[in-house]
Computed example of a mutant assay.
Amino acid sequence: MVNIRNLDPSASPLDYYGSELRRLREEARLNQQQLGAVLFCTASLVGQIETAKKVPTRQFSERLDAALMTGGHFSRLVGLVLRSQLPTWFQPYAEMEARATYISTYQAQLVYGLLQTEEYARAVLGVENPDWLDQMVAARMERQRILGREIPPVLCVVLDEAVLHREIGSAEIMRNQLAELLGLCDHPWIQVQVLPFEVGQHAALMGSFNLLRFDEDPDLFYAPVYGGGHMSADHQVIRERAVGYARLQAAALSREASAALIERVMRERYAHQSGSEVA
């Protein structure tokens, strides 16, 4: 039999997913090849997921729920699996981010993770995580699902103008990423502003940071550091960073002027490379 390995369901969300897949497949009296045919995938893929050697996608999980009539069991479980693929040091922040009702962020070098296209995320994460790239990208895309909720968090983003000019991946990837940002200009719960180069010194010269607000829990401050991240609920830190963020928003271009700058950079820097043009 293909891919037989005993799993400890308590070892990780991935192991639990695999053990549940095997249990329910066997209850349905299907072998891996038969289930794979129903799911439009190979028996090998089914076996790799059952043995926790491969991370399932959300699409796979939705098809699995339909095939085995589980009532959405795997679609709910896959979120835990994908979040578990995030770096250990980042998981506490991701959990708090998913609960936040208001997120404000300043990004000095990159588009904020919740707004990255899959291709942009793949280029960013591939620099230091080539062996785990698919899992990391899937986990980042899973984080973005909070923006599609019936009541999503309010998201305010201030991007340094350098973010627009730093070519990540390729010109095509950057065109698509900037187009994604432009598409958010009329979003009711997302505000994107650009801090232009001419501002000079500003309230976030120390680097990127995020502020999270919650309905019931204390506010949180988060700043990424190399190989980790710093999170704090200290009242004085929150107070100082909240004032700093308000100053950043005041110094940044308006929502409309930011969109105009994003479009101009997209046209002038990325539009005519590889024979492509922006409509």
Results as ranks from 00 to 15, higher is better:
9 P>N: 02
13 P>H: 11
17 Y>S: 06
19 S>K: 06
23 R>I: 10
23 R>L: 07
25 R>H: 09
33 Q>R: 14
39 L>T: 04
40 F>D: 15
54 K>C: 05
61 S>Q: 07
62 E>S: 07
63 R>V: 03
68 L>A: 05
70 T>I: 13
72 G>C: 05
75 S>Y: 11
77 L>Y: 02
85 Q>W: 10
91 Q>G: 04
94 A>I: 12
94 A>F: 04
95 E>D: 03
96 M>D: 07
98 A>E: 03
101 T>V: 12
104 S>V: 13
113 G>M: 02
118 E>T: 01
126 G>Y: 06
130 P>K: 15
135 Q>A: 15
139 A>V: 12
141 M>E: 10
146 I>Y: 02
149 R>Q: 14
157 V>P: 00
165 H>S: 04
171 A>E: 12
174 M>N: 14
175 R>L: 12
188 P>K: 14
190 I>A: 05
191 Q>N: 10
192 V>R: 01
195 L>S: 06
197 F>P: 03
197 F>Y: 09
198 E>I: 13
199 V>G: 09
200 G>N: 05
208 S>Y: 06
211 L>D: 01
229 G>N: 04
229 G>Q: 07
230 H>Q: 05
231 M>W: 08
233 A>Y: 05
235 H>L: 14
242 A>P: 02
255 R>M: 12
258 S>F: 08
265 V>F: 13
266 M>I: 00
268 E>D: 14
270 Y>K: 07
270 Y>L: 10
274 S>L: 13
